[in-house]
Simulated scan of single mutants.
Amino acid sequence: MPAEPPLRQGNLLPARVLVAAWSLLVVIAVLAWVLTVRQAGDMGVEPGTMGMGIPLFLLLWLVMMAAMMLPSVAPVAITWVRWIGRSSTGVARAARTAAFTGGYLFVWTAFGLLAYWALAATGDLVRDHPGAGRWIGFTVFLLAGLQQLGPLKNVCLRHCRSPMSQLMGYAQFRHWARDFRVGAHHGLYCVGCCWGLMIVLIPLGVMNIAAMAGVAAVIFIEKLWRLGPAFSTAVGVILLVLAGLAPFQDWLLPGLQPSDAPMHMP
């Protein structure tokens, strides 16, 4: 198969096509938020997996990732649409963009397996030893803060903020399932960038809508704001402060409170 044409002005898509692509991703994200909010209202905030098996949890996790991550990945997806350019028909562009998004969400769904096991382990521990929740919260906030300030975060964040050179390199991929693999490859960088922020849902509650919205906003700002790297560092410092407070402030740990234990608000 011939290589994709170079990304130059002559290959760029009309504005209406790019607007349509943006609109589609926004609609998907909004629908995912609606489904997530409705499901969260039925389930509440509890420790562990809330009785869900792996298939149901991964389905819910996939919807959550679409809600939380699509707004921040949209610029990269649109850049890929521009790369596809005029070499594809409208239907083919839509299919290839869907394949890119599918590959990206596939990686985050695989990460959901790790999240499921972590939630199951912490949930069992909290039910057997309620006081352990404070130290789980301390550990999670500490790991998240250190990850925000670590070298892997910087490398992956630079890629997520400026992916053009990497996208250019994707032209060397073999054509079979290329768009899915490109999305998955970018998703791996995104997991490397954001896993620390995701694990704070363990103490805050995996179905805590306010926490999900806050994490999604942090990810969006980190990737798209001009001062995103500095903002990322500030978030890391805040997470370290929360780690110091977690053993003494139960209100920071709604996702680690046994269902029959009241939360003490300051």
Rank of each mutant, 00 (worst) to 15 (best):
C193E: 03
A98T: 04
A230M: 08
C190Y: 01
Q39Y: 11
L204Q: 08
S72I: 00
F231G: 09
A66G: 15
W176R: 12
I78G: 07
W135P: 06
G145L: 10
L142Q: 11
T79L: 10
V200T: 15
F138T: 12
Y104D: 04
G150N: 04
L252S: 13
H185C: 09
W22G: 09
E222D: 12
L197W: 08
L256N: 03
F111C: 04
L7D: 14
P6H: 09
A32I: 06
A216G: 15
V27W: 00
V107Y: 04
L31Q: 10
R96S: 10
P55Y: 07
R16M: 01
M164K: 03
A230I: 13
Y189M: 09
H264S: 15
V191Y: 00
F57Y: 14
A261T: 14
L253D: 02
L227R: 12
R174Q: 07
R86M: 05
Y104C: 03
S165N: 13
R96W: 07
W61Q: 05
C156S: 14
G255C: 06
Q39D: 13
R82W: 10
H186D: 05
A213N: 12
L224E: 08
S162K: 01
E4V: 09
N11Q: 15
P55L: 04
W135N: 12
L149T: 08
L188K: 06
V107T: 06
M207H: 12
T233Q: 10
H185D: 13
G123A: 08
F138L: 15
L197V: 02
R134A: 15
A98Y: 01
Y116G: 07
F141W: 13
D250M: 11
R161C: 06
M50V: 14
A234D: 02
M68H: 11
V200D: 04
D128L: 12
V206L: 12
P203I: 05
L113N: 00
L157W: 01
V241P: 06
I238M: 10
M52P: 01
G51N: 04
N208H: 11
W225G: 08
V107F: 06
H185K: 12
V45N: 04
P75V: 08
L142C: 14
F106V: 14
P203Y: 09
A94L: 15
M52W: 08
N11V: 01
M198D: 02
G183A: 01
A211W: 02
Q148K: 13
I209T: 15
H264M: 12
Q148N: 15
C194V: 02
T89D: 11
F138I: 02
L239C: 11
G150F: 00
A74I: 00
Y116R: 11
A66T: 02
V34Y: 06
A20V: 05
A171N: 11
L56H: 03
A184M: 03
M198W: 01
V26T: 14
